[in-house]
Design a protein around this nucleic acid. Structure first.
Ligand SMILES: [Mn+2]
Ligand SMILES: [Mn+2]
Ligand SMILES: [Mn+2]
Ligand SMILES: [Mn+2]
Lengths: 232, 232
DNA sequence: GTATATTGTTAGATTATTCTAACAAATTTA
DNA sequence: TAAATTTGTTAGAATAATCTAACAATATAC
């Protein structure tokens, strides 16, 4: 057969591919229950879709084994993530949305099939490399760079860091950060760390001073750019 | 039953609603074969979807009779058209697309459920009332104004007109207009009209002179803004 | 190491959207 | 008006995406 047309992935399939991609990056192996949980479908539904994706050559799956994306599936997923993150960045930088408002919209816009639309966004923004939450934007070939930030919970008193990304971009967490005026790029100086509960006192924006719980610190990814005292 | 949730129209249903709305505006009555033809589906498919839309309260349908949108269906359709036309205008005025490139993208973007996204577009553009092809943009209540332009084929020699809208926005026609540098807002002076084939010679942009076939003239909607000689 | 809990699978059903085939109604042509 | 054409309907089937119920395999806890 010469004229076999390769069917485009449906919106549903695209969401599964993206979920597999994101879960694999966050947790390593992806099993059916995690996938079902992430997409809020039943396990039989996830099971059945994984078989469909395997038939399409996007993943490998053996009964009772974790699901693994093929290079093809990984690229498909990365290109959807690219559209998602370009959209989020466009909404924030060109349309005035807050970083807590853009995920839901991008969840829909990422399924638009119009490469010129996203190329134009990219061009208008000057080819950004990260989204509004600090996550890297895959390139047109689906390659994604590993930014290797440290969690703020690993920082030591005396160190100065820059808030570079988040490991949680939920609306609730973003709204918490808004209420503290914590934005990406903020310089934080670690004043002290409480041994009992691992909470950290930081100063930032010249005068402000805040106590951040361990829960929060874990979700803040930072670049450690200067160390005045790393003895403790 | 107090807690009956009213299901949102699917993308498919939205496309049917829009087709019914557009066909009704262009041709008056809408029958199943026109609808099927417009959406490139079989007649049984269109027939079945019309029954579905009736169950949802969006249209009225009796066997062998034309399909009629209810006020509810008309509003639903108009709000999708609003999203479509706002998107087209945004793509042209804010993202640098040509008027011949935007329809296909808008056909997808119109199905995004995020009112703030479209409100923001609207605001950024200063609340435009027409799309890049001169078609009116329905307001937030789904009301649409009737602009009542005349076709250029009705204009008489000596008259001066402004190109205000198109009754055909196909890529092919738009590319034809591009090749002639005919854009909305262009002032045209009707030099003469050939009785044999109804073609019209116009002058515009100071020096240019063009012969436009009847076929083209019919698709050009104009505002007649001055009449130096309407005797013929 | 058995019992319990969790995870995964299969089977079978449902809803949405589409098709083709066959037939019926309505309209147009002759 | 009768024949031919077009338009519309019904029936029946297919595919995609989902579910619940029942059972099976794997992992965890005691
Ligand atoms: Mn996101
Ligand atoms: Mn999505
Ligand atoms: Mn359009
Ligand atoms: Mn559409």
């Amino acid at each position: 057969m010469i004229n076999q047309i390769v069917q485009m992935a449906s919106t549903t399939e695209e969401n599964y591919l993206k979920a597999l991609f994101n879960l694999a990056n966050e947790r390593g192996e992806v099993n059916i229950s995690e996938l079902a949980n992430q997409l809020e479908v039943s396990m039989p539904t996830a099971n059945s879709m994984v078989k469909t994706l395997q038939k399409a050559g996007s993943c490998i799956y053996e009964k009772y084994k974790p699901v693994v994306l093929t290079p093809k599936g990984k690229k498909e997923a990365a290109l959807i993530v690219r559209k998602h993150r370009l959209t989020e960045m466009f909404l924030v930088t060109k349309m005035g949305f807050g970083w807590e408002e853009v995920h839901e919209i991008a969840e829909q816009v990422e399924h638009i099939h119009a490469s010129k639309f996203f190329e134009r966004m990219d061009e208008m923004m000057g080819y950004p490399t990260v989204d509004p939450h600090g996550s890297p934007i895959p390139d047109k070939q689906g390659r994604i760079q590993d930014l290797q930030f440290k969690s703020l919970s690993e920082a030591k008193p005396g160190q100065e860091v820059i808030l570079a990304a988040l490991s949680d971009s939920s609306t609730e967490f973003l709204e918490y950060l808004n209420s503290r005026k914590l934005t990406l790029g903020t310089e934080l100086k670690i004043i002290s760390k409480e041994a009992f509960d691992q909470s950290i006192v930081v100063s930032f924006l010249d005068s402000e001073k805040e106590t951040l719980s361990q829960k929060v610190c874990e979700k803040l990814l930072v670049k450690i750019f200067e160390s005045k005292d790393s003895s403790q």
